[in-house]
């Protein structure tokens, strides 16, 4: 029984952590129309960031500032934002396909950096030795994980609310306008390049936050955690849920994550022994299939974007 409960705790924790990354992507793609093909890079910057800033310095390792946890998280988020800022400046105008290719390349570069820059990132072995906040206070793993689940849930709610507010703010309106028609927005005196850069950086920082929470949970990060398939997982979650809709983003995340975990379990239980080796591959194919099927059957996702009415409008309802 306790086994099932603690599995559920794990499932929800990861589900919420991934939801945060999907919300970041929703800001970029759903709100702004920015195709980020390198989600793993910004997630990774946050994941490595939190351990580099918060972990203790060890022999043979250059970095490890041992900062208090809130500062470590802030540093991780800023690192992801800095990466996004650099990428954004290089791909100056952040146009559709170029951005997709550039960000995909960045993700490969970040992964390779993590794999090879051993003095900083620990190389293929990854980074360990991170002391999680309150770990010594709550020393029973079950209760610790439960507390962490609640913490992650609170963070998710906060991020969700911030994004909902952005969606209804003048800035959100501007993002949608630019997504729909850049030239028209420009003719109204808006600067698409600047607005897009802001949305790109902010969305990437949210992905970084997700990565930081992920690495905190495991107190460990390795290049294996930020491989390109992560980007596609995050994308499939957004597409299934419905891009442009934050509820859809969270909902889609939990469904795809359940499918991923569930299929892994079913395959390990029932697949013939000689197939066991290919479980990962089968799951990758499933992710691809889910994306394609959703796009064919329900292109706008399970919870499509709905009409956003800003607050000031709600006040002046006619009659």
């Amino acid at each position: 029984m306790i086994g099932i409960v603690s599995y559920l705790v794990f499932f929800l924790t990861m589900g919420f952590v991934l939801s945060i990354a999907v919300l970041g992507l929703n800001l970029q793609w759903g709100y702004t129309g920015l195709f980020n093909g390198g989600v793993a890079a910004f997630f990774g910057a946050g994941a490595y960031g939190v351990i580099l800033f918060g972990g203790s310095n060890k022999a043979g390792q250059l970095i490890g500032f041992g900062l208090p946890y809130p500062f470590a998280v802030a540093g991780a988020v800023l690192l992801a934002g800095l990466l996004a800022w650099i990428v954004g400046l290089i791909t100056t105008h952040l146009r559709h396909d170029y951005l997709a290719i550039a960000t995909f390349g960045v993700a490969i570069a970040v992964e390779n950096f993590a794999r090879n820059a051993e003095p900083i990132t620990g190389g293929a072995k990854g980074l360990r030795g991170f002391e999680r906040p309150f770990e010594t206070v709550i020393n029973d793993p079950f209760w610790f994980n439960l507390a962490y689940l609640i913490f992650v849930f609170v963070v998710l709610i906060i991020v969700y609310n911030i994004l909902e507010n952005i969606g209804q703010s003048p800035f959100g309106r501007l993002l949608r306008a630019i997504r729909e028609d850049e030239v028209a927005a420009q003719s109204l005196g808006k600067s698409p390049a600047r607005v897009r850069l802001q949305a790109f950086i902010f969305g990437s920082m949210i992905m970084g936050l997700s990565g930081a929470l992920y690495a905190t949970f495991y107190a460990f990060i390795s290049p294996q955690d930020i491989v390109p398939i992560l980007t596609f997982q995050i994308w499939s979650m957004l597409i299934v849920g419905g891009s442009g809709n934050n509820k859809g983003a969270v909902f889609g995340t939990l469904i795809v994550w359940a499918g991923w975990v569930g299929s892994g379990w079913v395959l390990t239980q029932f697949a013939p022994v000689e197939m066991q080796l290919y479980i990962g591959t089968i799951q990758f194919i499933m992710i691809g299939l889910i994306i394609v099927l959703t796009l064919l059957i329900r292109p706008k996702g399970l919870l499509p974007e709905k009409l956003i009415i800003s607050r000031s409008v709600a006040r002046v309802k006619p009659e």
């Binding site: 003048p170 309106r173 949608r176 997504r179 028609d181 028209a184 003719s187 009415i309 800003s310």
Partner: peptide, 21 residues
């Protein structure tokens, strides 16, 4: 102010949002 020949409003925004923008 420039009013383009086509695509001169935002279809995904409400009338009021178009004006506020």
């Amino acid at each position: 102010a420039y009013v383009p020949q086509t695509n001169n409003i935002f279809r995904t925004l409400t009338i009021r949002q178009n004006l506020m923008l």
